[in-house]
Design a protein around this nucleic acid. Structure first.
Lengths: 132, 132
DNA sequence: GCAATTGATGTAATAACATAACATATCCGT
DNA sequence: ACGGATATGTTATGTTATTACATCAATTGC
């Protein structure tokens, strides 16, 4: 999907996520944008919905947070499957793709005649720097 | 891990999950146990924490819900990695294990020196019965 | 030009999910 | 019986997400 011109709110939210060192919750984003005139959660959630749709932001289900896509130039959707390693100490997120994993899951789903719509692979733990 | 004797509240919560056709949210469980004397969310969450620890219940992060483990006789923890296919129409959850996927992810994590603690693989879509 | 449609925004209220803090009670080893 | 650990009960609160409704702005068809 080609990303259309972002609206004002979408740009503000995207900028906050791009500058962040770690995933942010919707309410954290809201707080960071109070000075820009944001007042209500919906302003954030609506922008996030679009950014997710465009594939430039990912939602981390296991921590109810959002990150800017780490591979903005490639098309994440075409990879079919994105996986995340999330450090519980420093918050760093490593985003990666593995075709073999993708393939195995796809084959399994096909064998079950299960039509996949949205896949989540998230590993929580500690990154090289933070691990004892 | 061997599962110790369940307490009263743990048994009640586990029974509700075992009898359910689909994953249940903590608050849905609470409602189903009002007649048994449950009054507060914490009674459910505390029981769930233990059941998760014992490995007899899984949490589905992407839908904030809980299911009884589908493979009670095997030890899910020893599989290292459990994946779920979740039907968004009927709610059915298919739990499965794939050693190859496990292996690929483990190798990748090792290459990054990332210490995994908890992994989540969830695929939302439509099961064979519900797919158009 | 101008109504009609569509998409974006603003705001308030509420729903849904989860935990903190504190008090009591029950179980078990000694 | 005592003391510690675990389980429970209860209230309040914190956190995440959506519903409902009003307004505004850009676009399209006529």
């Amino acid at each position: 999907m080609t990303t259309p011109m972002l609206t004002k709110n979408q740009s503000l939210v995207f900028d906050v996520l791009t500058k962040a060192e770690a995933p942010l919750s919707a309410y954290t984003i809201l707080d960071k944008l109070r000075d820009q005139g944001f007042r209500a959660p919906l302003q954030v959630y609506r922008a996030l919905d679009k950014l997710l749709e465009y594939g430039v932001v990912h939602r981390l289900e296991s921590i109810n947070s959002f990150v800017a896509c780490a591979h903005p130039n490639e098309d994440c959707h075409s990879h079919g499957l994105v996986a995340f390693a999330i450090c519980e100490s420093c918050g760093q997120v490593i985003e990666f793709h593995d075709h073999e994993v993708d393939h195995r899951l796809t084959d399994w789903l096909k064998s079950q005649k299960f039509k996949a719509e949205k896949s989540t692979i998230e590993i929580r733990g500690h990154c090289a720097n933070c691990a004892a």
